[in-house]
Design a protein around this nucleic acid. Structure first.
Lengths: 206, 206
DNA sequence: AAGACTTTCACACTTTGGGGTGATATTTGA
DNA sequence: TCAAATATCACCCCAAAGTGTGAAAGTCTT
């Protein structure tokens, strides 16, 4: 579970890259690679699937950090932190559209780097949770709280199961399922399963 | 729409606070207040409802920045950026649990501040969106892409609307709705609305 | 032991959803 | 301009979901 975080460093200035690598090894992260240009970076992302990428924006060659960011978002959903020397409005405007998990201005200290990485890792964990809301959250959208059984069945409903499937999976008759759902709908003040589910989606999106 | 971002500064060192205020006014943000201690901060949050809070962790008095962060999360869902001089593992551990939108180490430059704020503001906007995936994302889960109309109806379906409601809202007959849905299901390779919605929801959780 | 709540079930009835088929305008692109 | 794609609609049929009513058995509290 608590395996080392796999980090890829994308930075064209070798001195800075080595410096970061040294710091991070001290801090017990696992450095899966250092890419000095965009193409190498894309290769390494593909082959080594890091948990987090430290991404210099200004790279030599025709692939910029922003390009890599887009790939990380669209194709891999791997979070990244920008490293850059510039903070002019124009750059920031480009940068923020790619929703990085963090943004560090050079020159930075080891503690800044550590703070940003830990924050990103935590965010990543948050994101991974499946997230069916706790009973209390569901109860908040009901006029009267659900019973434990009702909550249990609701999780099944959320999986997309039909009444028959629910009956089979919970070892009760379809009629009983109908009764329970009837009561759930009434408590949630909705008229059918789809509205119940949208209401739950609403909770989860926040 | 593009109103000024309302920012509250919570910082017990008056000199630093004034400094930040000056910078931010230059940068065309609206400073709704400066709180030098926790109690004042909570009052101001309640009465002035800022869009973003800059939050010093180490405050005089018995309310810390972390306490305020918790209130901001639980009660107001107002994002905040920490300002702090410390980045020791222990502090960071506490800090990251409160999921700030950013984290700046003192002393910081104006551009660092600006970068962090802009990032936070962008994240906030993202959060506010309904979050229904873009057409391209939906098309990725289809064997053939949806038409614009089909995508439009799908968003309605996602709201939990029944066929009748869809018909009414889109000014077409229930039969037409059925035809469209039939085609959508076939393109998405699902057998009913449940499965379509779960598939979309799968997208959103990533 | 009495009452309240929960869980289970049945049956009859109505409404809704999904599949199949076919058809007619309208729009669009080559 | 002509074919393809799109948007609209109407049937029919069956399966699934939802509603109303009633009721038995179990648990928990007081």
């Amino acid at each position: 579970m608590s395996e080392k975080i796999k980090i890829l460093i994308v930075e064209d200035e070798a001195l800075i890259a080595k410096d970061i690598e040294f710091s991070l090894r001290q801090l017990d992260y696992h450095i899966v690679g250092i890419a000095f240009d965009g193409m190498t970076a894309l290769d390494m992302i593909h082959s080594r699937l890091p948990d987090l990428v430290l991404l210099d924006i200004e790279l030599n060659g025709d692939i910029s950090g922003i390009d890599i960011a887009i790939v990380l978002n669209e194709k891999y959903s791997i979070p990244f932190i920008y490293l850059t020397s510039y903070a002019d409005p124009c750059t920031i405007d480009m940068v923020k559209k790619t929703l990085p998990f963090g943004y560090i201005l050079k020159p930075f200290s080891e503690r800044e780097l550590y703070g940003a990485i830990e924050l990103a890792v935590y965010r990543l964990d948050e994101k991974k949770k499946t997230g069916f809301p706790a009973k209390e959250k569901i109860d908040d959208l009901c006029d009267t709280p659900l019973t434990d059984r009702e909550y249990e069945l609701l999780t099944g409903l959320f999986e997309g199961k039909s009444n028959q499937e629910l009956a089979k999976d919970y070892f009760i008759s379809v009629n009983t399922i109908k009764t329970h759902l009837k009561n759930i709908y009434s408590k949630m003040e909705v008229s059918n399963r789809h509205k119940a589910l949208s209401k739950i989606f609403g909770l989860m999106k926040q």
